[in-house]
Amino acid sequence: MSDARSDIFARIREALKVKAPKPHLKTDANPGKTSEVAKPWLPDGGETADASLAILSEQLAKLKAVLIRVPDQAAAVKAVAELASSKNWKKVAYHGHDLLRPVASGLSCETWEADATFDKQRLEGCDAGITTCESIVAQLGAILVSSATSGGRALSVLPHVHVVVAEASQVVPDLGSALALAKARHGDQMPSMLSFITGPSRTGDIERILVLGAHGPKELYLVLVG
């Protein structure tokens, strides 16, 4: 008996002997690159940095994510500290990153560099997780985190609140740009997880009524520096 793999491949090759007509595409763009072809048809991500920031801000508001814009690093530290005390966080986990260590030091509650000594049970007991990100997609209000830049896989999803601290220069216009940037940065050594986070976790499973915080964070804050 032949193995399943060769059987399936034989079936596929046999099936594809008869061709199916190709869908018609009215465009002059390079047909090899989907994002380039579809760019003028997809939602706008802004042509300039300012336009992108304006779209991002509108998208995040619609998603019920909170955008906090600050001029510099010191102001970011202050903004997160204020958030922590107003929300009464007791335990905060953060990703060990130069941008985040001063933020953690600025908090008066218990803080823990989660990726230095990872413990899933301890992470489950944290009120908030603070991470950096790879990039931010203005077009969709999506924040791209990865296991490399956000303290692994669970830190950005297990705690009840997720805070992302990022530079304004990390905002890209659209999804195609974010994917291209990730590929350029990591090549064939992609982090084991790349995740686009578009607003706080949500569900509509009960009577199609929107509820935030299904399994992931109920609140999402983006602190944008610069």
Partner: peptide, 12 residues
């Protein structure tokens, strides 16, 4: 939705 909340790529 513009995108669903989580769109995640796993490699290994």
């Amino acid at each position: 939705q513009p995108m669903t909340c989580y769109n995640t790529l796993y490699s290994g």
